[in-house]
């Protein structure tokens, strides 16, 4: 009955099909990401009320928290893609895993920088070695390690498989980052938005946060589409479908 899903996925994993699909998806994703991002920024910086304790300084949350979510989410996607790449050797999975790493690294970097700016205003320090901050820094190093390993091989596919291994092992850090504030006494506060149980944030503040979350997800989709398309063209440069695209470009 529902075997059209695996069939469709199987078809999508073929490079030319994915190339076309990503080409169609990308402009929509980027347009929606920019639109929602602007709405979220307006909602967060202008409409949302100041916090009772932190005043206007808390507004950096609208960048910090969505970036932090993305740093973990992208690592999850990269880990799953790496697993598929290692076991089934699907070319698209290798491409998705390797194209995700720089985007995830960027979001992790933004998280650390905005957290630092927030920390110096509220806590009174730029950096401290508590469990949440340290594990997030380890996440950045894992991303950078995956990128470096990928590029240290002459053969792109060999590099992708080796880096996929590191990406897969590093996935144990994702729950550690998330639960660090529960498992240990930390300077960093606990989670505000909870999937189970009530969130501890006013409704006027939560909608820009969730809108920004959707916007960052869409940005990731758009960015992944661009990077995967470029990588697929490079990997399949000798194939007929790439030659076809090249010839159309020249003629057009």
């Amino acid at each position: 009955m529902a075997n059209w899903i695996p069939l469709w996925l199987h078809k999508l994993s073929s490079p030319p099909v994915f190339y076309r699909f990503a080409g169609v998806l990308r402009p929509w994703a980027i347009a929606l990401a920019v639109l929602l991002g602007l709405v979220a920024l307006y909602g967060g910086l202008v409409l949302a009320p100041p916090d009772y304790q932190q005043g206007d300084d808390y507004r950096i949350i609208f960048i910090h928290v969505p970036s932090a979510w993305m740093s973990l989410f992208i690592y999850g996607v990269m880990g799953v893609a790496a697993f598929i790449a290692l076991v089934w050797r699907i070319k698209l999975a290798e491409v998705v895993a390797m194209a995700s790493a720089p985007i995830g690294a960027a979001f992790t970097f933004i998280t650390l920088v905005t957290g630092s700016l927030w920390g110096v205003r509220m806590w009174g320090t730029w950096w401290t070695w508590d469990a949440r901050l340290t594990s997030e820094l380890v996440l950045l190093f894992l991303y950078l390690g995956v990128i470096a390993l990928y590029h240290s091989f002459e053969d792109r596919r060999q590099g992708a498989r080796t880096a996929a291994f590191l990406a897969l092992i590093g996935i144990v850090n994702v729950p550690i980052v998330h639960f660090s504030v529960v498992w240990w006494n930390t300077l960093h506060q606990g989670s505000t938005i909870k999937l189970l149980g009530p969130s501890t944030i006013a409704p006027g503040m939560v909608w820009p946060l969730l809108t920004m979350m959707v916007a960052t997800k869409l940005y990731y989709v758009a960015s992944l589409c661009s990077r995967a398309r470029a990588d697929l063209l490079a990997l399949e440069s000798g194939k007929d479908w790439v030659r076809q695209i090249a010839e159309n470009e020249v003629r057009g």
């Binding site: 100041p50 916090d51 009772y52 808390y58 806590w123 009174g124 505000t192 944030i201 503040m205």
Partner: peptide
């Protein structure tokens, strides 16, 4: 030698508080 302030994970407007 150093004192840091910790804030909680609750965010709300002053009027609500």
């Amino acid at each position: 030698t150093e004192v840091l302030a910790k804030h909680d994970e609750t965010y709300m407007p002053k009027e609500l508080k």
